[in-house]
Simulated scan of single mutants.
Amino acid sequence: MDGNGRWATNRGWPRLVGHRKGAERVKQIVAAAPDLGIKWLTIYAFSTENWKRSTEEVLGLMAIFARYIQREAERMSREGVRMRFIGDRSKLDPKLQRLMAGIEARTAGFSRLNLTVAINYGGRDELLRATRALAIEVAEGRLEPCDITEAALADRMDTRDIPDPDLVIRTSGETRTSNFLVWQSAYAEYEFTPTLWPDFSPEELATILARFGNRERRFGGVPA
C-alpha cells in the first residue's frame, strides 16, 4: 500500500494525513473484496525497514494502527472478516500487541474474508526467524537435518496456515517487491500501478483482477 506520504505531500499536507487517508482506503478495499471473489487478502502495513522513518511518523503510524483495530473490531465481526497479523511483534508497543491479539481472538471463527496485516514484517526477517527455529530443533535433537524440506521451512513461517498469494499488487509506480512475502510469492503474478494508495479504488482492483483472470499460469511447466 505505497504512496500515502507522497499523496499528502503533493497536496501540501503532513505525511500522516496521507496515512490516515490510506487507512480509510483499506476499509473500502476490505469491504469490496468478498464481492470481487477474494477470500484471502494480505496488506503490507509496516515493514522491518520502516523504523528508519522519523520518530514522529513511526509513532503516528502506530497510533493509526491502534485506532483502526479499535474502531473496526465490531464491523469486522459483523461482516464475517477474520483478521490476523504477520511479522515480528516483539518490537511493537505492548498495548498494540494486546489489541492485535484481541481482534485475532474475536474474529477467529469468521471466514467470509481472511484479512492478514503485515506489521513489522520483512520477507528476509521471516526467513531468518524460520531458519533459526529449525536450527534450534536440530540442535535439541528434535529434528534431523535430512528432514528439513520446503514444507518444514514453510511450517515455521508466519504464513504457515495462509495460502501463497496468487496476485501481488504494488501501488504508487514503484516496480520492486520491497521484501514482501519473498518465499511465498515465488509463483505469484504481479501488477504495478502508478496509482497512489489513497486513490486506489475498488474499481481499479476489479480491473486488475480481470486482467489476472486472463493470464496463463504454468508454474514452470508448459501449456497442456
Rank of each mutant, 00 (worst) to 15 (best):
Y68F: 15
P94V: 10
E49C: 12
T171Q: 00
D2I: 07
L92N: 07
Y121G: 06
V222N: 08
H19Y: 11
L96A: 10
I86F: 14
M62A: 04
E24R: 00
S77H: 00
D125L: 06
P165W: 01
L181K: 03
N214H: 14
C146M: 10
R124Y: 03
I119T: 13
V182M: 15
F200G: 04
L113G: 03
K27A: 05
I86A: 14
I208Y: 05
E49Q: 13
G18A: 04
L153H: 13
N120Q: 15
A135V: 09
R132Y: 10
P94A: 11
A130H: 02
N10K: 15
E137N: 08
Y190S: 02
R6M: 03
R78T: 09
T193L: 05
L153A: 06
A108T: 01
D93M: 12
S185A: 13
R215V: 07
G173H: 13
E216N: 09
E79G: 05
V182F: 09
L167W: 02
G102T: 01
R67K: 12
D88Q: 14
L143T: 03
A45Q: 04
L209C: 00
N4P: 13
I64F: 06
M1W: 04
E144K: 15
N114E: 09
G109Q: 09
R15N: 09
R82Q: 15
N10F: 07
A133W: 03
R106D: 06
F180Q: 08
E137P: 00
T193R: 08
N50P: 08
I69D: 07
R176N: 11
W13I: 03
F192Q: 09
Q97N: 10
D161W: 03
I86D: 02
F219G: 06
L128Q: 11
N50R: 01
E79K: 13
V138A: 02
F46S: 00
G141D: 04
A135Q: 13
Q184L: 02
R6I: 06
I29W: 01
D147C: 11
D2Q: 05
L127E: 01
E79L: 14
F85V: 01
D147L: 12
P145Y: 14
R82D: 01
P198I: 00
G141T: 02
D93G: 08
R112W: 02
A105N: 02
R106I: 04
R176K: 13
G213M: 04
L134S: 11
A33Y: 05
T42V: 11
P145V: 10
T55W: 07
E189Q: 14
S111G: 14
L209Q: 00
T177Q: 12
V168I: 15
I86L: 15
L113I: 05
D88K: 15
A108G: 04
A33C: 10
D199E: 15
R89Y: 08
C146Y: 04
Q28K: 12
R170D: 04
T149W: 06
E140R: 11
I38Y: 07
